[in-house]
Amino acid sequence: MFKRLLLGATPALLAGCSGDLSALDPAGPRAANLATLWWVMLIGAAVLFGLVMALFALAYRRPAWITRVTPAQWIVGGGLLLPIPILIVLTGTALVLGEQLLPKGEAPVRVEGRAQQWSWYFTHPESALAPSEILHIPAGEPVDIAVTSLDVIHSLWVPRLGGKIDAIPGKVNVIRLQADEPGVYWGQCAEYCGEGHDGMRFRVEAHKPEAFAALLEGRAP
């Protein structure tokens, strides 16, 4: 019965790893960094969990081994030696990978994004492209999205292309995204913003560079 339950649950678990809104199915270097961090954290947590469960099992199966450890050894080992290296590795990984996500300098393309309950509007300054609910970007190069909001706080998130950024009224926040390949990606508001929050999705179209240039100039690619 238990085995059947496990087998039945496996496809449901694996299905979470792909799909339009999966951060574990990265389609660009920035999202790949975040997915790496997620895996490092999962592995770290799994190792710790396994270790604690092994000690727990030992307490039942080999109580004599456990009682040989003095209270001081438990405190120093379990309270200092075990968590500190793991926390240093996790924090270090997050710092190194996080630094690489920052929009340093100017990206080749900059798009302005506005959030309003419950839609996103994107404009390409100095282009023939009309404001649109679709985010058009070139594939293969970093794109900065300057995000703001007209009402409440929203958050722009394209899980397969990068991290999240808050859209705050009266303030402009910049996030850098990148898609390696042309295609269609999906974004989702990631900060609860009212009853339409869950449907506040947007489409991202990544074009080949020449097709993107043609789009900006208002001619058919």
Partner: peptide, 10 residues
Amino acid sequence: LPVTFASTCI
């Protein structure tokens, strides 16, 4: 320690 090396502003 990160205040000695991490990016301050973007």
